[in-house]
Design a binder for these strands. Sequence first.
DNA 1: CTTCATCGTAACCATTTGGTAACTATAGCA
DNA 2: TGCTATAGTTACCAAATGGTTACGATGAAG
Lengths: 113, 113
Amino acid sequence: MDQYHNPTEATLERIGGKWKTAILCLLGEQGPQPNGEMLRILSPVTQKMLTQQLKELEADGLILRTVFPEVPPKVVYELTDSGKSLQIVLDPLCAWGKRLADAAKQAEQEPGN
Amino acid sequence: MDQYHNPTEATLERIGGKWKTAILCLLGEQGPQPNGEMLRILSPVTQKMLTQQLKELEADGLILRTVFPEVPPKVVYELTDSGKSLQIVLDPLCAWGKRLADAAKQAEQEPGN
DNA sequence: CTTCATCGTAACCATTTGGTAACTATAGCA
DNA sequence: TGCTATAGTTACCAAATGGTTACGATGAAG
């Protein structure tokens, strides 16, 4: 990787995957979750995509993967401290997006439509 | 575009291009900038990429493009109010990335290397 | 011996994204 | 006539990203 042009890129590189913010928000709001549960909540994500994104998040030290040696297998994911520290990034990201969605919904009902 | 899974995606869709955060930060910190200046500061961005990203930002209402009818032509870009409102998103993004870079630099000099 | 539940992987493909290099337009200037 | 500076476009290409489908492993339950 060559130099970053500004520090935001380092952050975006870690949360930029298609499902990563959804995953991080889910784990932040609902606490540790098993794979199957995330699969349902984040539908229509596929098992492959979910696994892939989770792997990358784990490699970046943002989440922790715990396997319970049962049958059938059970795997639970949760935020690490570093992952939790992302909350201060995700919150504004979420708030700004919400404002945008609200503004769009408003515009829909305006008379000048 | 289908439904968002969470509101962060709407935000990321707008700032997610390779040079967009750099552009937004530049305009936020240094004020309005002409094309040529941005080209130099954001080097090694190419004219094509810069134009493309600027166009998308303009289409999303985040920046304003002003052409001065001179020869040779002069074009200046600046943040709109909506673009300025992104500051509260970009700042944490930037701060988190900086912390990460600092931590990495620290680890380099640690004895347990 | 087949089925189920759970999590993961492999092979393959389509789209999106980022990038290079060459071209356009215009008026001044030598 | 031909060069300069500024901003942008066009054609083309390579890499990254996201997705579908089918398959593997395991032991309990029927």
